[in-house]
């Protein structure tokens, strides 16, 4: 059994009033200090390379989408947010997504899709804001998800850097 020894209170403390006054003086002083609130939409957060926002699809320099609709992100997605239908193209890589929907209401921004992607086609962009007036509008289709590679470059470089950790052979 643990016996907690409480501090003996002095008379002033027992009276409680002086302590009340002390407390009041503390809160009164704090009223005049600078608030730390960030006025969010006007003062947005700084975005860094580790910012993990909503997933977006990479459009390569030759204007073709990097995604081959392999479905690994769909399978990896723990929230079942992704729906992909593939189709054939004439390009060297024969397969491309005809439909690529991410239900942003389901998406939990975990980044599993980014990790699962074998083609470096989906990355967590720095886009964080998500608001609309209907549920349908928040199911993003392929056109809404496409981003030029340059827009995602910071994150792409970061992910590559992280991944090289696992690629360097261990000392053993």
């Amino acid at each position: 059994m643990v016996i907690v020894k409480r501090k003996e209170l002095s008379l002033a403390e027992k009276l409680y009033l002086p302590e009340v006054v002390r407390g009041l003086s503390v809160t009164f002083r704090k009223m005049f200090e600078k608030p730390i609130t960030r006025q969010y939409p006007e003062e947005p957060l700084e975005k860094t390379e580790v910012t993990r926002g909503q997933p977006r699809l990479v459009v390569k320099e030759d204007d073709s989408i990097a995604c081959v609709s392999c479905g690994l992100c769909e399978a990896a997605c723990p929230a079942y947010a992704i729906t992909i239908d593939g189709g054939e193209t004439d390009r060297a890589i024969e397969r491309e997504p005809k439909r690529f929907d991410i239900d942003m209401l389901r998406c939990i921004l975990c980044g599993f899709c980014e990790e699962a992607c074998p083609k470096d086609a989906i990355f967590m962009s720095d886009e964080l804001e998500l608001a609309d007036y209907s549920r349908e509008a928040l199911i993003y289709n392929i056109e809404k998800l496409k981003r030029p590679q340059a827009a995602l470059q910071q994150r792409i470089d970061y992910v590559k850097k992280i991944n090289t950790r696992w690629q360097t052979p261990s000392s053993t």
Binding site: S69, C70, G71, E74, A75, D85, G86, G87, E88, E94
Partner: peptide, 9 residues
Amino acid sequence: FRFQARVWN
């Protein structure tokens, strides 16, 4: 069936 579906789906 080509490119129609992933078999695990």
